[in-house]
Design a binder for these strands. Structure first.
Lengths: 248, 248
DNA sequence: CTCCATCAGGATGTGCACATTTCTTGACGT
DNA sequence: ACGTCAAGAAATGTGCACATCCTGATGGAG
């Protein structure tokens, strides 16, 4: 299985894809913003087809909304849609913590503890950017510990769509989850084997996030594309590495 | 919001997409088959870019596997991947039937009963094709009754990937679920409000499907594309109608 | 003054042609 | 005889140019 990268390679695709996602993640692109292909191609310094492909992919993944012959837009999640996503997450994550509570390796417990410790450290440093990342990764970690790749992929998609609201609507409040101590409690219940308690804590945790998000309606403001993508394109693509091609 | 269809329109895209999916659904395309773009374009009578777009979409949805600079292939699901998919389904669907058991409208109960009745009718007629469809739709129906669109979308994707194995590996056995009576029992438990029983029945049901599929390893045989797509392209696109564009 | 029709400008969608890569076939050397 | 390498052919990936459609503005009619 040769994997020779070419000159421009698919890395260019990933770069464009990652640049747009990062801009959204950083709250540069307000809901309702139209992402027009020529402007993006000019700003990012790539061909229009590259931008096209990336936009189509983002649309398919639910990050952007496309209207035929009109263009692609940054979606404004309604409260109802958000509630639905968290509802599905509740179903999945309650089952996940239940399963982990009923049986997990010592290595798993170690990773959980380490993650919670890292979150606490970030909290002490008041490093809200890092804490934002860690808070999301906690939920992915739980899925990973189940050893089911399909589950991990699915939950990751759900989670990114969940955190999109924070990124887009309330970029100021970089408090992804209501605080690391809730994660700590959940981890403790899992390690202690208390399935019911872990599930209940997770449900309360997610419910809290919903009310937290519902309290911060998205702020509509126009955005200049050139400004939004300033010092973005060069950085390495981090979040795309979980999205590899499936090889039979 | 105007919706003027053009001459060829997006319907052509959907037609190509649907044709390939239908061919897979009918077991015409064996696992490992390479879908090369020029041949498909010639067979379906459309331009190569149309085929390209459809293939990319199918790859992204998990129906096909793409290898850069090599082409797109019909995947051969391993037993492990299949088990993972059913594992996720177990988590979600157990939660679904629990929720429905704890509260549902009379209209919901009516739809459930009607569906089970239709399955029994198809069984009596020995209409295995129709039963195959209905068996899948039963699980989607449960998700729909929860009133959560996100959940419905997600489960539909999982389900199509589950049934892919039947379509590809064992097209002969058109018994999607082990029999409508299991669906009937689940529906009965839901309507009766027995959450634990409904959840347990669902878990047993899904576990049974896994063992059923694991017993039928995929049969590898080369396929002629022109033969696989005979009397396919003209038919109306049925399964694509649930995949509309998201409009903000 | 308001409303509608018409038209220019720009953006999206599509087909085409070329560059690049990979697979196959055949010959050559060991 | 087998393995290796090279050259041709075919398929994939990409950029370009044109067709089609939407949007906003301008001018005329009521």
């Amino acid at each position: 299985m040769p994997r020779k990268p070419r000159k421009g390679d698919v890395a260019a695709d990933e770069a464009v894809y990652g640049a747009i996602r990062r801009a959204m993640h950083m709250g540069r692109l307000a809901p309702g913003t139209k992402l027009q292909e020529p402007a993006l191609a000019r700003v990012l310094g790539v061909s229009r087809e590259r931008v096209r492909k990336a936009l189509h992919r983002l649309v398919h993944e639910g990050w952007l909304t496309a209207i035929p012959n009109r263009g692609t837009f940054v979606p404004s999640l309604t409260v109802e849609e958000m509630r639905e996503i968290y509802d599905v997450r509740s179903m999945l994550e309650a089952a996940i913590v239940r399963r982990l509570s009923e049986g997990h390796t010592t290595a798993a417990a170690k990773r959980l503890k380490a993650h919670v410790a890292e979150e606490k450290a970030a909290t002490r440093r008041d490093d809200r950017g890092r804490l934002f990342e860690l808070s999301g990764e906690f939920h992915v970690l739980l899925a990973e510990l189940c050893g089911n790749d399909e589950l991990t992929r699915l939950l990751r998609g759900l989670l990114t769509r969940s955190t999109m609201h924070f990124s887009l609507a309330a970029p100021r409040q970089l408090t992804n989850c209501a605080g690391p101590h809730e994660h700590g409690d959940i981890a403790e219940a899992i390690i202690g084997g208390k399935a019911d308690r872990a599930a209940k804590l997770m449900l309360v945790h997610l419910a809290g996030l919903v009310t937290l998000q519902a309290g911060h309606p998205p702020e509509q403001k126009p955005v200049d594309l050139a400004e939004a993508f300033r010092d973005i394109e060069g950085k390495p693509v981090r979040e795309a590495i979980g999205r590899r091609i499936r090889n039979a």
